[in-house]
Structures are given as structure tokens and as C-alpha cells.
Amino acid sequence: MNVLELKNISKRYGAIQALDNVSLAIAPGEVVGLMGDNGAGKSTLVKVIAGNFAPTSGDILVSDQKVAFHKPLDAQKAGIEVVYQDLAICNNLSAASNVFLGREPTRRIGPIKVVDYAFMRSKSAELFARLKSETRPRDLVHKMSGGQRQAVAIARTLLSDAKIVLMDEPTAAISVRQVAEVLNLIRQLSDHGISVVLISHRMPDVFEVADKVVVLRRGELVADKKASDSSPEEITGLITGAIEHA
């Protein structure tokens, strides 16, 4: 069974063919490194999967069921979560508040509903423990390292029982030590049976965690192979076009 399957996805913007017959299957717990030069169609592909816009043609299957996403919320309901680089976190709130942002648990005191802080803290502590992260629920996010912020963003996806997490350049702006932390988080997700699509320019990061490497060039899928059967040199060749196909 595949968590996500794309069948002949094409996306056109007027005369521009952003995606051309892309087919891809992702198994549960699989980590896929999605690579390609700027303008190769990576972001378009991610936006199609995340429901930001519909493909011109082709089918998307989630757990072997055909789906049609009209808006990002549809994709979220189907178990597809996107971790945005910096966007989705509020610096002035605690880690626990951020994990539950937009989905705050409440309890009743008489006629009014109040936010259940105790539950938020204990549940997010549990999520951080599952991610083997040392993030503390009460800490304010603006005092955290880049790696810890990623842990907060990823904990959000665990809360919603995501099947597949799309990560857009999660290691672009953080220190070397924190990169290791983020890669660890990705492994944790994979161990929990959650598939990860890692969009990155950083070759070593992709080869460190990915089971499978996928390369896009000018909207076409030119490679879809096991990371262990490939090499950074080959992928570089595929990205630039020095190697036609793999």
C-alpha cells in the first residue's frame, strides 16, 4: 500500500509546463528527498500535494483512494501536513501554545470555555518526548534554537495524526549542530510510520536520511531511485542535466 501516489500529474500555467507527467509513489514511513534546481517544479509539486492548487491533469491517491483537494484544509484532513520554514510559528507564545495553535483544547468552567493549559503542556511534553527532543513545553519560542523550533513545528503534525509530512528546506537557515537535530526528527517521524518528503538543496542532508531520491528537471521527473543505489555526483548530474535520465 502507498500512503501517497501521484499518477501522471501535469500542471500548466498558460504556456509554461510547470509539471509534466509526474508519477511518484511513497510508502508508509518512507523518507523521500525531493531535489531539483530552482524553477524545476519542486514547489509546484509540493503545492499540488498540499492542496494549494489543483493539477491540470492527473490523479492523486491517498492510501489508494482517489482524492481531489480544493483547498489546503482538504489535504490536511487527508493526513498531509506541510512544515513551513519559519512561517507557522508565533515567537511570543510558548512551545505548547504553538503546538496547539488553532486547535486549542478547552474545558468548561460553568458556562464559559477556558483553554486547558495543563492538558496542552502534558500532551506537548509527550509529543516532544516521542520526538526525543529536549524542548520544554513552557519555553517561549523566541528563545529557542532553530532545531527546537523545527521540533515544535513537527510536533504540530504529530498532533493531527499526519500520514505524510512535507518539509520545505527545513535545514536551510540553521547551524550544523541543529541540522543533525532536524535530521533526527525526520528519522523519528519515519520510525512512527509517517512518510516525509524532504525538499532540500543540501545534498549531504538528503543522503543522510532519505530512503529514496527523486529529481525534477524542467517539470519532468528524471530520477526516482533508492538513495543507496545513487551518489551525490549522480544526483548533481541529474539536476544540472549532465545526466539525461536514471
Binding site: 512561517l87 507557522a88 510559528i89 507564545l93 501554545s97 464559559i112 470555555k113 483553554v115
Partner: peptide, 24 residues
């Protein structure tokens, strides 16, 4: 300090985009 609305108010004030992405 104790309702969902209050939490959302702080989130919107600091980072409206993040709040919107979170479904607020």
C-alpha cells in the same frame, strides 16, 4: 489569558501569517 480567542489574539498580533496557516 484563558480563552481560545485570547490565544488567537496574541498569535494574530505577533505573526498573522502563522496564525492563518494554523487555521485561525
Amino acid at each position: 489569558h484563558h480563552t481560545v480567542f485570547g490565544r488567537h489574539l496574541c498569535a494574530v498580533g505577533k505573526n498573522e501569517e502563522a496564525a492563518r496557516f494554523s487555521g485561525i
